[in-house]
């Protein structure tokens, strides 16, 4: 099972659980746990790790958007993260929210960031230590750049324009039932919060978790190239990934950008909850 991360395009962004265990007391490293479930961290986390919640910490409370530069700087200060701190993200469900947090950090230019391969599950499966102590770190002075939305984030109108372009590859990373529009409603509740089911015209369906193994670690570079390449999601394209609200697609964004080294990959965080409801937006079933 062990393989060298050196085969990936950017091997430095991935660390293994062993590395994390050796750096628990490293003052230059801050572990950040990001989960889907807001209470999971409190049940036990890697000793010294802080929690960053995608809703309360990373989303703006009023506008459907991310936090701004000032709030990001405050958050970094509270979590004891300096501009030169190496931030290592990990979390539940194959690291999906960990890659989401990683992606938001990139909007602010915090490039000294890594993902712990295998996430919370692998750490626990290996029988490693968990703690319920919530650490407090001295506040830092953090200076962020203005949030940069144009390199790695795609907006609705850009996606609409992209439909006319040849060099764009759209990848829908939801389940096949969501992609085909079969699954939208459940009894009494609109499951996807969208009025229509289906996908953005021309999008290929590669469910996000296809990129990981049973133990939540990433598949080999060769396997990943095969998975994306055979569906036309190739490095020469301008790739846009989307899902429901942008969390699963940030995982795919991470895989394509850092493990496979694609130059131009953007995450459309409006995703299906925007596109499926948008007036005048074409869909395909």
């Amino acid at each position: 099972m062990t393989q060298s991360n050196q085969e990936y395009a950017r091997p430095d962004v991935l660390v293994e659980t062993d590395w994390v265990a050796e750096h628990l007391n490293d003052p230059n490293v801050r572990l950040v746990e990001s989960n889907e479930d807001v209470l999971l961290y409190d049940l036990g986390h890697i000793p010294g790790a802080v929690k960053i919640d995608w809703v309360s910490d990373l989303n703006d409370p009023l506008v459907r958007d991310y936090l701004d530069k000032e709030r990001f700087e405050q958050l970094m200060s509270q979590k004891g993260i300096s501009n030169d701190t190496t931030v290592v993200f990990y979390g539940d469900k194959n690291n999906w929210w960990a890659t989401y947090a990683f992606w938001v950090f990139q909007l602010f230019g915090h490039t000294n960031a890594k993902i712990m391969n295998g996430g919370r599950k692998k750490w626990i499966d290996e029988g490693r230590e968990l703690s319920t102590d919530v650490p407090q770190y001295p506040p830092t002075q953090y200076t962020a750049q203005e949030r940069s939305d144009h390199e790695i984030r795609a907006f609705r109108d850009e996606v609409l324009q992209a439909l006319k372009q040849q060099n764009v590859a759209l990848v829908d990373v939801r389940s096949n039932d969501e992609y085909t529009g079969k699954k939208l409603h459940m009894p009494e509740y609109p499951q996807e919060g969208a009025l229509r089911g289906g996908h953005i015209p021309g999008a290929q369906n590669i469910p996000w978790a296809t990129a990981v193994r049973e133990d939540s670690t990433f598949k080999s570079r060769e396997e990943l190239e095969q998975i994306y390449g055979t569906k036309g999601i190739t490095p020469d394209k301008d790739v846009i990934a989307y899902c429901r609200i942008g969390e699963r697609s940030s995982h795919t964004w991470f895989v394509l950008t850092y493990l496979l080294g694609y130059d131009k990959v953007r995450n459309y965080d409006g995703s299906w909850t925007e596109w499926g409801n948008g007036v005048g937006l074409p869909i395909e079933k």
Partner: peptide
């Protein structure tokens, strides 16, 4: 106030 709509959906679903 403290949970996202998606997380609240769980309580709704279990009640239903």
């Amino acid at each position: 106030d403290v949970l996202s709509p998606r997380r609240l959906q769980g309580v709704h679903t279990i009640l239903a």
